[in-house]
Simulated scan of single mutants.
Amino acid sequence: MSLTPPIASATPSGAFERLLTIMNDLRINCPWDKKQTLESLRHLTIEETYELSDAILGGDMQEIKKELGDLMLHLVFYSRIASETDSFDITGVLNGICDKLINRHPHIYSDVEVSNEEDVKRNWEQIKLKEGNKSVLGGVPASLPALVKASRIQEKARGVGFDWDNKTQVWAKVEEELQEFKDEFNVADGTAIDQEKAEAEFGDLLFSLINYARFININPEDALEKTNRKFIKRFQYLESKAKENGKQLQDMTLTEMDVFWNEAKNASK
């Protein structure tokens, strides 16, 4: 079967309609697309989201554009599948998000006044509670990675006024948690430690550091990922230099490896 592909459009509405037409064609005629379910697409959507994240961190605008298209396809795909059982369709999805945005921005679409971004966040959380949320933290997905989840928990708590007054207080908490962790896990002390308590204190320390990062406008997920990438780049430099010198890392001393590691650090400055 050969269908005539819909032509490109110069308008957002036309381009979106073109995507819907293609999705319908594929769902009816393509063996792979016909087979997909909400569940089978789920892991692919997660993968696409991480690919978008990589593109954003890499600052590659063309790659970001491409990955946004991939995600847009998934959103349309889910809606098409749901429409086949009369659960919902793309029109309902779009009107639903529009209605939510209007309702949660009364400072734009009603007579509520706000002074700053914090007022907007506070109103948002209060409106969600009125809509039926049993807890301010109820909207934080249980499956979020722990680092991201900690950030979201803290942001949402701040939205209803549960927060420190200033970053000095937060840093004092970091130092307090660091000391408590050291008390449980002192590497200079040869005595056995309570592993469960040490883990708990380490978690508290991480949580307080993430909190401090929020106060100085650092996204901890982005910061850690950039450090991960930096480490990978330097370690791969170390591997390549060792290979050039006919050596295996496992046969080198730490002092020998440090020479190449420092070269990598200086090269990236």
Score class of each variant (00 low, 15 high):
residue 123 N to P: 01
residue 123 N to I: 15
residue 126 Q to W: 05
residue 127 I to E: 09
residue 127 I to G: 03
residue 130 K to I: 14
residue 131 E to Q: 10
residue 132 G to W: 02
residue 133 N to Q: 02
residue 133 N to W: 14
residue 134 K to N: 11
residue 134 K to L: 10
residue 134 K to H: 11
residue 135 S to M: 11
residue 135 S to T: 14
residue 137 L to W: 06
residue 137 L to P: 03
residue 138 G to R: 11
residue 138 G to M: 06
residue 139 G to Q: 03
residue 139 G to I: 04
residue 140 V to W: 01
residue 141 P to S: 08
residue 143 S to N: 11
residue 143 S to E: 15
residue 143 S to C: 09
residue 144 L to Y: 08
residue 144 L to C: 08
residue 147 L to H: 12
residue 147 L to M: 04
residue 148 V to P: 09
residue 148 V to M: 13
residue 149 K to H: 05
residue 149 K to Q: 15
residue 151 S to I: 07
residue 152 R to V: 14
residue 152 R to H: 11
residue 153 I to K: 04
residue 154 Q to K: 10
residue 154 Q to T: 01
residue 155 E to A: 13
residue 155 E to G: 08
residue 155 E to H: 15
residue 156 K to A: 03
residue 156 K to D: 09
residue 158 R to E: 10
residue 158 R to H: 09
residue 158 R to M: 12
residue 160 V to R: 10
residue 161 G to E: 05
residue 161 G to L: 09
residue 163 D to Y: 13
residue 166 N to F: 12
residue 166 N to D: 15
residue 168 T to E: 15
residue 169 Q to D: 07
residue 171 W to P: 04
residue 172 A to K: 15
residue 172 A to G: 12
residue 173 K to Q: 12
residue 173 K to F: 12
residue 174 V to H: 02
residue 175 E to T: 13
residue 177 E to S: 05
residue 178 L to F: 14
residue 179 Q to D: 11
residue 179 Q to M: 10
residue 182 K to R: 15
residue 182 K to G: 06
residue 183 D to L: 03
residue 185 F to T: 14
residue 187 V to T: 15
residue 188 A to V: 14
residue 189 D to N: 03
residue 189 D to H: 07
residue 190 G to C: 13
residue 190 G to S: 11
residue 191 T to Q: 13
residue 191 T to P: 07
residue 193 I to H: 00
residue 193 I to T: 11
residue 196 E to M: 08
residue 197 K to F: 05
residue 197 K to Q: 02
residue 199 E to T: 07
residue 200 A to D: 06
residue 200 A to T: 05
residue 201 E to N: 09
residue 202 F to W: 10
residue 203 G to E: 00
residue 203 G to P: 06
residue 203 G to L: 01
residue 203 G to Y: 05
residue 205 L to P: 08
residue 205 L to G: 05
residue 205 L to R: 00
residue 205 L to C: 06
residue 205 L to K: 04
residue 205 L to H: 01
residue 206 L to A: 12
residue 206 L to H: 04
residue 207 F to E: 08
residue 208 S to P: 08
residue 208 S to R: 03
residue 208 S to V: 07
residue 210 I to A: 10
residue 211 N to G: 07
residue 213 A to T: 06
residue 214 R to D: 14
residue 215 F to I: 10
residue 215 F to M: 11
residue 216 I to Q: 01
residue 217 N to H: 05
residue 217 N to M: 11
residue 217 N to E: 12
residue 218 I to F: 00
residue 219 N to P: 06
residue 221 E to S: 02
residue 221 E to V: 10
residue 222 D to H: 12
residue 222 D to P: 09
residue 225 E to T: 15
residue 226 K to N: 06
residue 226 K to C: 02
residue 228 N to Q: 02
residue 229 R to P: 08
residue 229 R to M: 06
residue 230 K to M: 04
residue 230 K to C: 00
residue 230 K to P: 00
residue 230 K to S: 07
residue 232 I to A: 01
residue 233 K to T: 04
residue 234 R to N: 01
residue 234 R to M: 10
residue 236 Q to A: 04
residue 236 Q to P: 00
residue 236 Q to I: 09
residue 237 Y to L: 08
residue 237 Y to C: 04
residue 238 L to H: 04
residue 238 L to Q: 13
residue 239 E to P: 02
residue 240 S to P: 02
residue 240 S to I: 04
residue 242 A to Y: 10
residue 243 K to H: 01
residue 243 K to W: 03
residue 244 E to C: 00
residue 244 E to K: 04
residue 247 K to W: 02
residue 247 K to Q: 02
residue 249 L to M: 11
residue 250 Q to E: 07
residue 252 M to W: 03
residue 255 T to W: 10
